[in-house]
């Protein structure tokens, strides 16, 4: 560790988070399941393979265009399980609430959690509530954990071990909506941005792809660290690299405008309803067709390919015909986005 104190960048999901996890959490919690560093741990049980995950939500403001901390907390955990190839079943919900929070805000949050759970077909079966003194937390923090079941043939999805050169990289729609919606709500309350978070449960979309028997090699939801973080993660796997085409990646006009204005690179901005999927080349077109039939995949597109030409590098073919690498986010781009 090169710093004496925790900095905001340690929670960014980028390089600093990576270092913290490696040098502290893995160092002490050290075990084979954790060390795989997948979004969900895959546990062999007598009932078969189970996926288990947890995530905490600290977004500021707690209510933003397109969602609130409640449906974020449900979608996030549902998506973490789903991208492991699992079918999410049961969730827990832990609330840390600041003294003085209006009950109607809490009710809005809890109600939307229930609605989102219904949509995603999961049950919130256990929970915990703590109230802390004013100033000890900011309004409300929520932790959710979730379990789901997994078919044995989907086990390799989590690790990405089956990724091979030629595989296609797919995304289910536009990027950077969530991060910029929160940013707009936080800083420009009076400024109507009409940017809305993409917060959504992706389990049904993923299920329809997996049920088609398409050979899905890897999935990841592109939350903190944005799609760039996922590309870098894929590039680290096996002995392959990847190439993506900037021109195929959709950034909504209003989101692009705000990113340009504030100097954010949309590749690094958080999403809450987007996943990157690596599939066998022969299945790619079919997967796109299936995704486009789902409400959260209408703008699905093939955006790139796995290659053996430059191992461990994520290369971007820029919109103007140049080439450059995509690196992981270093430090903090935007704190408390989820």
């Amino acid at each position: 560790m090169t710093t004496e104190k925790i900095l905001l960048g340690h929670g960014s999901g980028g390089k600093m988070s990576d270092e913290l996890i490696k040098n502290l959490f893995i160092k002490y919690f050290d075990n084979p399941l954790l060390n795989q560093q997948t979004d969900s741990a895959l546990i062999e049980t007598s009932r078969g393979l189970m996926a288990f995950t947890t995530d905490s939500y600290v977004v500021d403001p707690v209510i933003f265009p397109g969602g609130n901390i409640g449906n974020l907390a449900v979608c996030g955990t549902v998506n973490d399980l789903s991208v492991a190839g699992a079918t999410p079943e049961h969730l827990s919900a832990g609330f840390i609430i600041e003294e003085g929070l209006p009950i109607d805000i809490l009710e809005t949050i809890v109600k939307s959690m229930a609605e989102e759970a219904m949509k995603a077909n999961v049950k919130i079966v256990t929970g915990d509530t703590k109230v802390v003194q004013k100033g000890s937390c900011d309004k409300i923090f929520i932790n959710t954990a979730g379990i789901g079941t997994l078919k044995p043939e989907h086990k390799p999805i989590s690790s990405g071990d089956d990724i091979r050169p030629g595989d296609k990289i797919i995304i289910n729609g536009s990027i950077a909506d969530h991060g910029m919606a929160v940013m707009a709500a936080r800083n420009f309350g009076s400024f109507k941005s009409n940017i809305s978070s993409d917060c959504a449960p992706l389990n049904k979309l993923i299920k329809s792809v997996l049920d088609s028997n398409a050979h899905v090699k890897f999935m990841r939801d592109a939350t903190r660290g944005g799609i760039a973080g996922v590309f870098c993660e894929i590039a680290k796997k096996n002995n392959t690299g990847l190439e993506v085409d900037e021109s195929q990646i959709l950034v909504n006009e209003n989101v692009r405008g705000m990113c340009e204005l504030l100097g954010f690179d949309p590749f690094y901005v958080a999403n809450e309803g987007k996943l990157i999927m690596v599939v066998a080349p022969e299945d790619a077109d079919n997967v796109i067709d299936i995704m486009r039939k789902n409400e959260y995949g209408t703008h699905a597109a093939i955006i790139g390919e796995i290659t053996d030409k430059h191992p461990h590098k994520a290369i971007l073919n820029t919109i103007v015909g140049g080439k450059r690498i995509i690196d992981m986010l270093a430090g903090e781009q935007l704190p408390r986005i989820c």
């Binding site: 690179d265 820029t318 450059r324």
Partner: peptide, 9 residues
């Protein structure tokens, strides 16, 4: 210059 990948062009 780096973001657009101009040196490679």
């Amino acid at each position: 210059i780096q973001k657009f990948g101009i040196p490679a062009m």
